[in-house]
Simulated scan of single mutants.
Amino acid sequence: MKKLLATIAIAAMACTTTIAHAQATDPKTELAKKVVALQQGPELDRLVNQLAGVTAQELIAKWGPKMEATVPKAKQQKASEDLNAELKKYTDDAGQLIGKQVNKVSTESLVPVYAERFTLEELQQLAAFFESPAIKKYQATAPELGNLFVQKLVEASRPEVVARIKQFDDAAVKIVGTSPAPGAAKPPAKK
């Protein structure tokens, strides 16, 4: 009986090793890994920086008003500089922490989806596409082009948006008023 159990255990381990080896060398999965890796370029770096920036904005929203409410006006400039230095360190660290997760998350979530939804031939075509010099040039140029587009879009829409802000402010004054109610907290002073 013990020999039978030992034989079954050895056979099960051999099957597990064979299955794991077959999964690791599956050409479709390997090609899916390649396609996912080829897609990661400057745009992904920009996304990581944006995610880190979003978390930094949350800290600014939390600590800006606290600083203005608790730090004497005479010391606010220095406190603001110190907070900005800490914020820069935080943003750099958060970007690195998020960046470290890119490969893991890509492997765990994107690779299986690519392997499931694309045929081997389609994955080969995608890999060839992402390896092409034109796409590499596009990926290198895309952040600059994106920034240029956003800058021009902001410039083009600014007059209408500013006019709409004024409409909102006018409506808000009618709703909220301009004088603080007795006992109401004062809004933080503007810089």
Results as ranks from 00 to 15, higher is better:
E108N: 13
I10L: 15
P72K: 13
L59A: 06
G177N: 01
F168V: 08
K28S: 02
T18F: 12
Q23G: 08
N147Y: 11
L123G: 02
A74I: 09
E155M: 08
E155T: 03
L4T: 04
V161C: 04
Q96W: 09
P188K: 05
G183R: 02
W63Y: 14
Q139L: 15
F129N: 07
E155V: 07
I135Q: 05
E58L: 15
L83A: 12
G146L: 03
V113S: 14
K166S: 06
N147S: 07
Y114R: 00
L126Y: 02
I98E: 04
A22C: 00
F149L: 11
E108G: 02
K75C: 10
E68V: 12
E58Q: 12
D82H: 07
A181V: 06
K75I: 05
L126A: 01
L153S: 07
V105Y: 08
V173T: 08
Q101L: 11
D92S: 08
A156Y: 08
M13E: 13
M13H: 11
L51T: 04
K166D: 13
A61S: 12
T119V: 00
A172T: 05
A14T: 14
P133D: 12
V35D: 03
G95F: 00
E68D: 13
K166M: 05
A181I: 09
F168G: 04
L110N: 01
N84E: 14
I98A: 00
E108W: 07
D92G: 02
Q101K: 13
A11T: 11
Q139A: 09
S132N: 04
K78Y: 12
Q76E: 03
A134E: 15
E122L: 06
K88R: 13
L47E: 00
V161M: 15
Q96Y: 11
K88D: 15
P65K: 04
P159L: 06
L44I: 15
Q167D: 15
L110I: 08
V105Q: 06
D45V: 02
I175Q: 15
G183F: 00
V35I: 10
A171P: 02
S132F: 09
L110C: 10
V173L: 05
K100G: 04
V113Q: 15
V176N: 08
Q167I: 07
K75L: 14
Q39F: 08
E81D: 11
L153W: 14
K3Y: 13
P182S: 05
L120H: 13
K191G: 12
Q124A: 06
A85F: 11
Q76F: 04
I175K: 13
C15Y: 09
V48Y: 01
A32D: 05
A94W: 07
K191S: 09
A171L: 06
I135M: 11
R164D: 11
L51C: 01
E86K: 12
T178K: 10
G95P: 05
I19W: 11
K88I: 13
K34G: 05
D92Y: 06
R158G: 03
L83M: 14
L148C: 09
K2F: 11
L97P: 07
N49T: 14
A189G: 03
E81I: 12
P180T: 02
V48E: 01
A127C: 04
V35M: 03
N103I: 10
N147D: 15
L153H: 10
A6K: 13
G183P: 01
V113D: 12
Q124N: 13
K190N: 08
A127D: 03
P27H: 10
V71A: 04
A185E: 03
D170T: 04
